[in-house]
Design a protein around this nucleic acid. Structure first.
Length: 608
RNA sequence: GCCGGUGUAGCUCAGUGGUAGAGCACUCGAUUCGUAAUCGAGCGGCCGUGAGUUCAAAUCUCAUCACCGGCUCCA
């Protein structure tokens, strides 16, 4: 791997690649290609039944019900068959039929899934698209007019995957084939190049290369171990947020990792969240039977609630903002785990705000303001805000409709007040309340929730929380759950990919490395480093004794932002030859000036 | 949890039934060198794990664990 040497054309974007949603042409191409693929599959696998085959942002897929799962080898054969179909230059013909006629024809070819799809189509007439004489599918279109408009060299089949019919785990598992299709072979090549490029930013790869974290088989899946460098990163992010929270009146707390099962029965976790919790620890079989045991905490809220409840609170104490970097454990399904973005043990930058109903709106806005300012400081710009509401049809939630409506109302008012762009995610709520979530994308365009704010009327009720109001009566506070990072693990995963491993100076695990030209300069270099360290900078000397070219190469590969070459002339003039990753060689600079500039840059979240 | 794929040295990977390989890293020696790889030698592997087939298994079969791409589910 040549790493990112200056010669490599870093990220020159020669060819522009439209996304499907932005290009009518691509929509047609991909739609038709998915039909061609389905036709090819049914030719090679006559038992395969078709279901749906839409375009997606980078290509298309089609789900089949086939007695045998497809393998990578099958994909090759399918692609070959597709080429044949395309080369036959089949016309793509739209036909409108009545519902009865569509039903009759589907029954004639025995395609039960199509029948279900037909039942869901509201409008008439029903549109059917024919590929030549021998194959057709229910489809709204649009399509190209002839398969000759497709270029076999601009099409690639990518992978097979299981997918549930209608996205429902309890329904049949279908075989999904993913593919991609473009206008020209050049576009396909560019798409594949960018995909490779994205893989180079993958935090799992960079995390290993930069020595930030590891996973160890004997420890277990989804349980990251943080190396010294990774721990620096974590601590810096924690300290940064702690300072922001200090300014805003948060109160730090610390709570244990385990608790009696009863705590989670009161909160409702045991009833609604049990599947996501590690199994109970019981002292003996009798205790196990009686459900008398301890569990690892999947969330911090019940613990913070206990602290709130430990004294009688006055309205004068509110809002009370209890904050903790609380490590929680969730028994995620094995197939869900991956890198730092989905793990089984992670640290939430958690806080629970206990507020009066009158304070709710303002406090919610304050939290959103904090979250947005955190994202700004971290230079995270590409996110979407999601209103995560409950699915009224599901039974996975606790609490009354009234409480839910009040909480959802508070979130709606907040985004309206802020004029914030957002979308709604039905069924995305926590089991105890609705959320405002901030959704980010990783290098491979998968979406992840980071920051979150939640309004909760339910847990205060279940734990019978109170405060004494001005008039002396006992009233119930409202809770806001919030986490700007979401979790340190996921945040760092996203940050690594966002920065492509090039951390800003203030976050870099090693900020500056001194590179002695010969051993002669070692003592001087060590002295400069100790000056820097005494000022809190993360500095080190390369003691390897290799030649300068190698020292630079190593520092570049490790993505160290500032390199300082020390040779005879630097030593003589008490200066350093500075080379930065971002700007290259900056020439000779006196040691005190280097230190001042470093200090200034770090304090102001700027580069050297 | 489900479907497909992959597990060989610390890392990246070659080896497809017959004596385990390369580059980098690491150790030692020589070199004291000016902005992306100095030369040489050495160390290092129960071929993820367990069973089976075979005269013989890294290689074939089954099971299991982990990882990767999806699905479902979530910070």
């Amino acid at each position: 791997m040549p790493n990112d040497s200056p010669q490599s054309p870093a990220s020159v974007e020669k060819i522009s690649l439209p996304r499907t949603s932005e290009s009518e042409t691509l929509k047609k191409i991909r739609h038709t290609t998915s039909h061609v693929m389905a036709m090819a599959v049914q030719k090679l696998f006559p038992k395969a039944q078709v279901t749906i085959g839409p375009w997606v942002e980078n290509g298309f897929y089609y789900d089949f019900d086939n007695p045998e799962p497809f393998t990578d080898k099958d994909l090759k054969a399918i692609k070959k068959e597709m080429n044949k179909i395309i080369n036959r230059k089949l016309p793509v013909v739209r036909e409108e039929v009545s519902r009865e006629e569509a039903e009759r024809r589907i029954k004639a070819i025995n395609e039960p899934y199509k029948l279900e799809i037909l039942a869901d189509i509201k409008e008439e007439p029903i549109t059917i698209y024919h590929l030549g004489e021998e194959w057709w599918d229910l489809c709204a279109g649009p399509h190209v007019e002839n398969t000759a408009e497709l270029n076999p060299d601009a099409i690639a089949l990518e992978s097979v995957a299981g997918a549930y019919w209608r996205g429902d785990e309890t329904k049949a598992q279908l075989q999904r084939i993913y593919g991609t299709a473009w206008e020209t072979p050049e576009q396909l090549a560019e798409y594949q190049r960018r995909k490779q490029e994205a893989q180079r930013r993958d935090h799992r790869k960079l995390g290993r290369e930069l020595g930030l974290f590891i996973f160890a088989d004997p420890v277990g899946p989804g349980l990251p171990l943080w190396t010294p460098k990774g721990t620096v990163l974590r601590s810096l992010l924690e300290d940064f947020l702690k300072q922001e929270q200090l300014k805003r009146g948060y109160l730090p707390v610390v709570t244990p990792h385990i608790a009696r099962i009863d705590l989670f029965k009161t909160s409702g976790h045991w009833q609604k969240y049990k599947e996501d919790m590690f199994p109970m620890m019981a002292e003996d079989e009798e205790s196990r039977q009686a459900e008398q045991g301890f569990v690892l905490k999947p969330m911090n809220c019940p613990f913070h609630i206990q602290i709130y409840k430990s004294e009688l609170r006055s309205y004068r104490d509110l809002p009370m903002r209890l904050a903790e970097f609380g490590t929680v454990y969730r028994y995620e399904q094995s197939g869900e785990l991956g890198g730092l973005t989905r793990v089984r043990g992670f640290t939430v930058d958690d806080s629970h705000l206990f507020v009066t109903p009158e304070q709710l709106d303002q406090e919610f806005l304050n939290v959103v303001d904090l979250i947005l300012s955190v994202f700004r400081s971290l230079q995270l710009k590409n996110f979407r805000a999601r209103l995560s509401f409950r699915d009224p049809a599901s039974d996975k939630y606790i609490g009354s409709d009234e409480a839910w409506e009040k909480a959802e109302g508070a979130i709606r008012r907040a985004v309206e007040t802020l004029g914030m762009e957002h979308f709604e995610g039905i069924g995305e709520a926590a089991f105890y309340g609705p959320k405002l979530d901030f959704i980010f994308q990783d290098a491979l365009e998968r979406e992840w929730q980071l920051g979150t704010v939640q309004v909760d009327y339910n847990l205060p009720e279940r734990f019978d929380l109170e405060y004494v109001a001005e008039d002396g009566t006992r009233k119930r506070p409202v809770m806001i759950h919030r986490a700007p990072f979401g979790s340190l693990e996921r945040l760092i995963g996203i940050l690594i990919e966002e920065y492509a491993g090039d951390f800003p100076l203030w976050l870099a695990p090693i900020q500056v490395r001194l590179l002695p030209v010969t051993e002669e300069q070692l003592p001087f270099a060590r002295d400069v480093v100790s000056q820097m360290r005494s000022l809190g900078m993360r500095a080190e000397v390369d003691e390897s004794g290799e030649r300068l070219g190698k020292l630079i190469r190593n520092a570049e590969t490790e993505k160290i932002p500032v390199m300082a070459v020390v040779g005879a002339k630097e030593m003589e003039s008490n200066s350093l030859s500075i080379r930065t990753r971002a700007a290259g060689e900056l020439g000779l600079i006196a040691v005190p000036e280097v230190i001042d500039r470093m200090k200034d840059a770090i304090a102001n979240y700027r580069e050297f």
